[in-house]
Design a protein around this nucleic acid. Structure first.
Lengths: 227, 227
DNA sequence: GCAAATTGGTTACAAAATTGTTACGAATAC
DNA sequence: GTATTCGTAACAATTTTGTAACCAATTTGC
C-alpha cells in the first residue's frame, strides 16, 4: 500500500541533517517541507495540513516538544516523530507525554526512519493521494486540481476529464472515437465534428497560454497525442 | 487522557519476560493476557478484540511477523508492537512491512515500552472523538459543537454532519453522490436535486454570514470542496 | 508543383447545464 | 401548540459547453 506524496514537515535546526532528511524522504516520493525552527510552522500547517511532523527536540527558541504540546492544545492531531540526539529517559517521557507518536535518536538509521514514517502514516489513516504526473503537469485526483510549477490552474469538469484521459494514457495516440467515448460518453448521438477540437483548444489555452510547450500533438486523421 | 483498562495481548515464549511484561502493564491498569505461542491467539482475538498486540518475533512454531501478517490478511487492524532480541535491519524491515506499528528490542526499558504502548493506543484509539480543525473552524466532536474564533456557532444536526464530512475530508473534492451517501444516507430514493445546495447554503450563512471567507467552493459538475 | 479536398484551429454566440436564492409547508422536536 | 428543521419548488444567476462560421494547415490526386 503506497502512501507516497504525503506531505511531511521537518523541523530541524541542523542544516545538514535537515538536508539529509529532505533528500531521503523526497526520494521516497514524499512532499517534504523543511523548517530550521518552529517559528512559521503553525501558519504553514493552517495552510497545508501536512500528514506528519518530524520534530527535533533541541530547537532554537521554542523547544520541540513544547511546540508539539501547543499544537495539540489548539486541536492539531497530526502525527509526530521526535528526533533527538539526547537519549535520556526523562526527555523520552516528556516527548511522548506531550503528544509524540514515535521517537528516534540521532544518529539514526535512514531505513528505520522511513519504515517508522510509513508505519505511522498507515496507522493514522492518511489517505493515499493519487497524483498523476506528466512533464510539469501534476494532476491531483483527490482534489481534482491541476498544478503546473506549484501553481494551481482552474479547470472545468470537462477539461479535467479530458486532460486526465490524456495523462492517464500518455505516450499513446488517442483516437477521436476513443476520446468521445471516454470523455463525453458513448451515448452522445449527434456529436459535432469540432467539439473535441474546441475542447482541446480551450484546454491548451489554459495550461499553455503562449503555446510554447506543445502538450497536444495532433495526429492527422486520427486524433491527438501528448507531446 | 487515560486509556487504561485497554485489553492487551502479549505473545512471548520466554516465560520470565512474559511475566515481567504482564506485571508492568497490569500495574498500569491494562487488562493483559499472555500467550506462549501464537497458537490460540486468533480465537482469542475473535472473542475479545484486544486493543493492542505485543508480539515477540522469535516464537516457536509460527514466526511472530508471519502471525501478524496472517492477521492483517484476514482483516484485523489491531496495533502491533514487535519485540525482539535481534537487531538486524532486515528483520526490522520485515516486521514493519508485515504490518507492525512499532519495534522494541530486548533488553528493553520498561518505561519506554509503557510510553510506546500508550502512544500507540492513543493514536489508534478514539480517533474521531477529538477536535477537528480547518482554518479557523474547530469542530469538537465530543460535544458536537462548532467554534469559530472561540465563539460557539449553533448548528443543526444535519449542518454538523455536513460540515464534519467536509472537514474530515478537507483538501478533497467531495462529489454530490458521496455527500448524499455520507450525510443523508444511501437509502434515500428520491433525492432532490437541490437538497445539497440548499443545505450548504444554510451552512454557509451560519458560519460565514457575510460570505467573505469562501469555505465552500463549488466544483462545477462534480460537487464541492473546502477552500 | 498546384489545386482541390480534407482535416485541424479559432472565435463568437447561444443553448444547456449547473448552482444560488428565496419562500413555503410538512415533519419533527420541544 | 409552538418553534425549529429541512425538503421541495420556482426562479434567478452563473458557468460551461456545443455549434456554426470562417481561417489555416496538411494531404492527395493530377
Amino acid at each position: 500500500m503506497e502512501r507516497k506524496n504525503a506531505e511531511i514537515v521537518i523541523i530541524e535546526d541542523e542544516e545538514d541533517i535537515l538536508e539529509l532528511l529532505e533528500y531521503h524522504l523526497g526520494k521516497e516520493g514524499y512532499d517534504v517541507t523543511g523548517f530550521l525552527s518552529a517559528d512559521n510552522v503553525e501558519r504553514f500547517m493552517e495552510e497545508e495540513s501536512p500528514a506528519l511532523l518530524i520534530v527535533d527536540r533541541n530547537l532554537p527558541g521554542v523547544e520541540g516538544s513544547e511546540f508539539v504540546a501547543s499544537m495539540r492544545e489548539i486541536g492539531y492531531d497530526t502525527p509526530v516523530i521526535f528526533l533527538t540526539a539526547k537519549d535520556k529517559e526523562s526527555e523520552l517521557e516528556e516527548g511522548f507525554k506531550r503528544g509524540g507518536d514515535d521517537y528516534i535518536t540521532k544518529p539514526f538509521n535512514t531505513k528505520e526512519l522511513l519504515l517508522r514514517v510509513e508505519a505511522l502514516l498507515r496507522r493514522s489513516g492518511v489517505k493515499q493521494s493519487d497524483k498523476l504526473r506528466y512533464r510539469d503537469l501534476i494532476l491531483d485526483n483527490q482534489s481534482r486540481e491541476l498544478y503546473i510549477d506549484k501553481r494551481k490552474i482552474d479547470l472545468t469538469n470537462l477539461e479535467y476529464r479530458l486532460l486526465y484521459t490524456f495523462v492517464k494514457n500518455a505516450q499513446q495516440t488517442l483516437q477521436r472515437d476513443f476520446l468521445r467515448d471516454e470523455v463525453w460518453g458513448d451515448d452522445s448521438d449527434h456529436f459535432h465534428d469540432k467539439t473535441i477540437n474546441v475542447a482541446i483548444n480551450r484546454l491548451k489555452k489554459k495550461i499553455d497560454p503562449f503555446g510554447e510547450k506543445g502538450y497536444f500533438v495532433p495526429i492527422w486523421g486520427v486524433g491527438y497525442k501528448l507531446g
